[in-house]
């Protein structure tokens, strides 16, 4: 078997030389890495940017277009905006946790940290996000009484019912995310088991 393996090793090392001898455009390679790095940063901060824009839009809406007057409505607005702000903070913590996974650690330690990260993601995609959506929904319906003074009944029904559909769609996507995180988590746990398995 050793002889055959040495042959494979020879083939492997010959291919290494071929790669080394092929022309290398360092400037282009570094430019490509930079572009990918920028894209990756945008991807990481994508959720935070989208949610921040939503907060800005909500503040603008309730400040310029529909400045609510009643205490109940103001608490409702607070719950809606507060919920999203909490979600932004959680996302920021998530990005920071992802950055703390040290790629220079050995594979076992890196896998353990990755498991901890996905476990955190699973928790924030699940119960925490559901609580935020519930608070947001309560906030939304707390504004309804004051809004009903300015809108027709059919408009209010349309608004309240359409919100239910939006909430269902949101819950569907959250469920999908949780399933995805759980799948990733179980794959990495399996990988770790494979790593530490004692061979006989």
């Amino acid at each position: 078997m050793n002889n055959e393996f040495e042959k494979l090793q020879g083939l492997w090392q010959q291919n290494r030389k071929d790669i080394e001898n092929s022309p290398l455009d360092l400037d282009k390679a570094i430019a490509d890495i930079n572009t990918k790095k920028r894209f990756s940063t945008k991807f990481h901060y994508g959720n935070i940017i989208v949610l921040s824009l939503l907060v800005v839009m909500l503040i603008a809406f309730f400040y310029f277009l529909a400045p609510v007057q009643e205490i109940l409505s103001r608490i409702g607005v607070g719950l809606m905006i507060g919920g999203i702000v909490v979600r932004i903070l959680i996302e920021a913590i998530s990005v920071s946790k992802a950055k703390k996974i040290d790629m220079v650690d050995n594979a076992i330690k890196n896998t353990e940290d990755t498991i901890a990260f996905h476990d955190y993601r699973k928790r924030i995609h699940g119960p925490v996000t559901i609580v935020i959506i519930i608070l947001y929904s309560i906030g939304f319906y707390m504004i309804s009484p004051e809004f009903s003074k300015y809108f027709d009944t059919w408009q209010m029904i349309l608004m309240d019912v359409s919100y239910i559909f939006i909430a269902i769609i949101l819950i569907f996507f959250i469920r999908k995310s949780v399933i995805k995180e759980m799948k990733t988590l179980s794959e990495i746990i399996e990988l770790k088991k494979e790593m530490i398995k004692e061979e006989v």
Partner: peptide
């Protein structure tokens, strides 16, 4: 692949953490 690269087993064990 690290073996094919001719890496020492101790170095590979260190990289993998096993």
């Amino acid at each position: 692949m690290m073996v094919l690269d001719g890496q020492e087993y101790d170095d590979i064990a260190e990289v993998m953490g096993i």
